[in-house]
């Protein structure tokens, strides 16, 4: 472009150079973070999955670097691993559904029914548990669910007892832990939904249920999907809450942890981690079509 700018007003040379060469600017912006990201994260991830195709000497615990499919085969054919995987998917799916069911009315009330002041207060109330430590919350539930805990104390007069430390307890606690991650994206997408659309639907004779199904749901679907990425994936990987309130319950996360950090078989743990990554990638591809990734 011809220079119309007088010479004395011309910007610094470096900045002019950058201005004329967007490629250089882009390169400068991308190089450091990409280097970090590829070296620190993706390479570590790739190496972990490579380990899944190696084996471990059972005496020296040295990794033997020869290509083998025995870990993957073991993971796919051993009934225990298959049932743990299915159990984990079942727990993650149940937790996700429960979170959606609980989040919808709360987010809807905050976004569409509450007055502005109450709305602000509600948002704060949805946010505070997100900041209160994960361990503190899991720990609180351990107390609640224990033999002499509040749940049994409340239920006892009715001749009932709580779930104790069990699968039900795991589902309950994971739902509790991830609920804010579901409420917030749903609230944001409901907040963006114009009230006039709801009014129009009502004026045209739709009842609340119909309006919800054909107007609200399609618009907030990406928000629900974004929330479900968190609830599903966080449940797939959890092992601490599971070990605190699960009793004998083992999920995929526990088996991976025991194999890699607990001195078990690292390649086998890597193969199990690969399984959970594949399940989550499939889930991401599934929900990507709703545009959920832009809502994260």
């Amino acid at each position: 472009m011809p220079a119309i700018v007088p010479a004395e007003a011309r910007p610094h040379r470096a900045s002019a150079f950058l201005h004329r060469h967007p490629g250089v600017r882009l390169g400068a912006l991308l190089s450091a973070p990409m280097l970090w990201y590829f070296v620190m994260y993706l390479a570590a991830l790739a190496l972990l999955f490579l380990t899944a195709f190696w084996s471990q000497d059972s005496f020296t615990s040295q990794i033997i670097r020869e290509l083998t499919f025995e870990n993957v085969e073991e993971v796919l054919t051993t009934p225990v691993y298959r049932s743990v995987t299915l159990q984990t998917i079942g727990v993650a799916a149940t937790v996700t559904v429960l979170c959606i069911v609980l989040a919808l009315p709360a987010a809807f009330f905050a976004a569409k029914v509450a007055r502005p002041r109450a709305r602000r207060a509600l948002i704060v109330m949805f946010l505070v548990p997100l900041w209160a430590s994960y361990l503190v919350k899991a720990y609180a539930w351990r107390g609640l669910l224990s033999e002499s805990g509040v749940i049994n104390w409340v239920l006892e007069p009715f001749g009932l007892s709580g779930p104790g430390f069990s699968t039900v307890a795991v589902i309950l606690v994971l739902t509790y832990l991830w609920l804010p991650y579901m409420i917030l994206p749903i609230y944001v997408s409901l907040d963006r939904l114009p009230n006039s659309l709801l009014d129009a639907s009502g004026d045209l004779g739709a009842r609340a249920g119909t309006t919800f199904r054909s107007v609200v749901l399609p618009i907030i679907l990406p928000g629900i999907a974004a929330g479900s990425i968190f609830t599903f994936s966080l449940s797939m990987g959890d092992y601490i809450a599971v070990s605190l309130v699960g009793g004998d319950e083992l999920l995929l996360g526990n088996v991976i942890y025991n194999n890699i950090a607990g001195g078990g078989n690292t390649p086998l743990g890597a193969a199990l981690a690969l399984v959970s990554v594949i399940i989550i990638m499939l889930y991401l591809l599934l929900v990507r079509r709703t545009g959920a990734l832009k809502e994260l």
């Binding site: 190496l47 968190f230 959970s276």
Partner: peptide, 23 residues
């Protein structure tokens, strides 16, 4: 890249953790 970049929060922490520990 914009899909890859969300992986550290989309994948469970345990996968990130064991990958880094291994590295």
């Amino acid at each position: 890249i914009s899909l890859l970049i969300v992986l550290p929060i989309a994948l469970p922490g345990i996968v990130t953790g064991v990958a880094l520990q291994n590295a």
